[in-house]
Amino acid sequence: MTSASVKVPFVDLTLQHQPIQAEIEQAIQTVLRRGDFVLGETLAEFESAFAAACGVPYGIGVACGTDATALGLQACGIDTGDEVILPANTFIATLIGVLRAGATPILVDCDPQTALIDLAAAEAAISPKTRAILPVHLYGQMVSPRQLRDFAGTYNLLIFEDAAQAHLAEREGYRAGSIGTAAAFSFYPSKNLGAFGDGGAVVTSDPEVAKKMRTLRNYGAPQKYLHTEVGTNSRLDTLQAAILKVKLPYLAGWNRARNEAAQRYDALLSQYDGITPIQNQSGAGHVYHLYTIRTLACVSRDALQEELAKVGIQTGIHYPIPCHLQPAYEYLGYKAGDFPHAEALCREILSLPMYPGLEETQISQVAAGIESFITRQAAALR
Rank of each mutant, 00 (worst) to 15 (best):
I278P: 08
R33T: 15
R301F: 02
A88V: 05
N218V: 05
L304A: 03
E371R: 00
K310P: 09
A368F: 13
R347F: 05
E25Q: 00
R217E: 08
Q377L: 12
F91V: 10
V98M: 10
T42S: 08
N89G: 11
C110G: 06
D118Y: 06
L15E: 12
Q365I: 10
D79L: 13
T232D: 03
T90H: 05
R214T: 04
P128T: 09
Y331T: 15
E307M: 07
E172L: 08
L308D: 00
I349W: 03
E260M: 01
P277D: 01
R264N: 06
A262G: 07
Q165I: 02
R131T: 00
F196R: 14
V8P: 00
F339N: 02
A124W: 03
H341Y: 11
E172R: 13
A380H: 06
T80G: 06
P112A: 02
H324W: 04
E348V: 05
S144V: 07
E170N: 07
G253T: 10
Q16D: 10
I60Q: 14
A342H: 05
K247W: 07
A132R: 02
P135Q: 08
N89E: 10
H286N: 11
S127Y: 12
A121T: 08
L269R: 08
G72N: 02
E307V: 00
G81I: 05
A164M: 07
P207H: 14
P57K: 01
A93N: 13
D79W: 09
T181C: 13
Y319F: 14
D109A: 12
S270I: 10
L13D: 07
V246P: 01
N233C: 14
A75K: 10
L32N: 14
A125Y: 07
R34S: 08
D109F: 07
S205F: 11
S270G: 07
G40V: 01
E307P: 04
A70R: 03
Q279D: 05
E41V: 12
R146C: 09
H289R: 13
G177L: 01
P145K: 00
C346A: 07
D206G: 10
A303S: 14
Q21I: 11
I313D: 05
Y219M: 13
K335Y: 04
G40Y: 01
L86P: 09
A252T: 11
A303W: 02
T94E: 09
E123A: 12
C54W: 03
S144N: 14
G81A: 10
L39Y: 10
A176M: 02
L239Y: 04
A22W: 06
T315P: 00
D12Q: 11
Q279M: 14
Q365W: 14
L86M: 15
P327H: 11
E47W: 00
A221M: 13
A53F: 02
F151K: 03
L193V: 01
V202R: 04
V230G: 01
S205Q: 15
A132Q: 04
A344M: 14
D109R: 09
V98C: 12
G231V: 06
F373E: 08
E260V: 03
D162Y: 02
P189A: 01
L296P: 08
M213A: 08
I133L: 04
A88Y: 12
H318C: 14
A328R: 13
S127M: 04
K7A: 13
Q281W: 08
R217W: 05
V246W: 00
T276M: 12
D273H: 12
C346I: 06
T292M: 12
P105N: 08
